[in-house]
């Protein structure tokens, strides 16, 4: 990690103690995506305009109420980055012409789910990165089309049951590596985060906020509704995602990928899988040893590939 930049978030008590995102949203109890958004928004601040794509979070701003202190623009499922382009360009024109003073400027942030980020909106994101758009992209990854009832998305992991993968083996495909796809564009910054590691998240958002250009963040978003676990388990599930190594916390900057939190002794992935109804068929009526081994092997292979990097 580039430790040159001094973080103000050294320990948990340095984190903002009050949230600026209002309460009473229609999101499910225990929504890991909302948790991450709270933490991100606290650091970005209210001088942010969120440009949203269709998904669970679209229902945050429902006429005539919004939990945001700042601005909001809903676009479509596929074109939130293009909306960010229009807003950023227009703000730049207004600033250049002196039609708004610098203090009236806004940070432009895209907010989408995985379905949009990994799939339908990928072309618009690729375009925005390639144009060097000065924006922050926050993808909350609940590994499915959550808003429509958790169908399989391009972010659904191997073996998970979804509303469209209901067979005995669950989803047969594999989760797309969006981090690598984004990083291949050589943007200013890419990071993975999770709401249950708020210090790591805060440092990354703090760093991204201070940068210019495309900055892209994927937050794994434990989703009690779509993953089928008790809402009070969100923190536990999130922590296990990191401890098992299934959700590596990392960042990309200047052509380098760095892991920001390496689990010293990785917990077996089944501890994470076991907690979620979408993987229940891997454990009962019989253990699906082959699939469990395959998932574990993939995680092991990932970290084996990372050895020496630290």
């Amino acid at each position: 990690m580039s430790e040159q930049i001094a973080t103000i978030y050294k320990r948990m008590k340095d984190l903002p103690s009050t949230h600026i995102l209002g309460a009473g949203t229609p999101m499910c109890a225990g929504c890991g995506g909302l948790q991450a958004l709270h933490e991100v928004y606290d650091i970005l601040g209210e001088k942010t305009v969120f440009v949203n794509a269709a998904g669970c979070m679209t229902l945050l701003a429902v006429y005539p109420f919004t939990p945001f202190r700042g601005s909001w623009l809903y676009t479509s499922m596929s074109s939130a980055p293009a909306g960010a382009q229009g807003v950023r360009d227009a703000l730049d024109i207004l600033l250049a012409k002196g039609r708004i003073p610098p203090e009236e400027d806004l940070a432009v942030a895209v907010l989408t789910g995985d379905g949009s980020a990994y799939g339908m909106g990928l072309s618009a994101t690729s375009g925005a990165i390639e144009r060097g758009l000065d924006f922050l992209y926050l993808c909350y990854d609940n590994e499915g089309y959550g808003n429509t009832g958790q169908q399989t998305s391009p972010a659904t992991p191997h073996g998970a049951k979804t509303a469209t993968a209901t067979g005995p083996a669950g989803f047969g495909g594999y989760k797309k590596d969006l981090f690598a796809i984004w990083a291949a564009h050589r943007p200013a910054y890419v990071a993975t985060v999770i709401g249950t590691e708020p210090l790591d998240l805060a440092r990354k958002i703090e760093k991204a906020k201070a940068m210019k250009g495309p900055r892209l963040i994927i937050a794994l978003a434990p989703c009690p509704t779509g993953w089928d676990f008790d809402p009070q388990q969100t923190v536990e599930v999130g922590k296990l995602a990191v401890k098992t190594g299934i959700w590596p916390l990392k960042e990309y900057e200047n052509g380098q990928v760095t892991h920001t939190k390496v689990p010293s002794q990785r917990v077996p992935v089944e501890e994470y899988l076991k907690k979620q109804g979408r993987f229940a068929h891997l454990f009962a009526p019989q253990r699906d040893e082959a699939t469990l081994a395959e998932i574990q092997a993939q995680v092991d292979a990932y970290w084996a590939g990372m050895e020496g990097e630290q």
């Binding site: 006429y63 202190r69 601005s71 909001w72 623009l73 703000l91 207004l94 708004i100 400027d105 806004l106």
Partner: peptide, 9 residues
């Protein structure tokens, strides 16, 4: 859109 007067669109 500008900072002083937040709007939702």
């Amino acid at each position: 859109f500008h900072a002083g007067e937040p709007v939702s669109q």
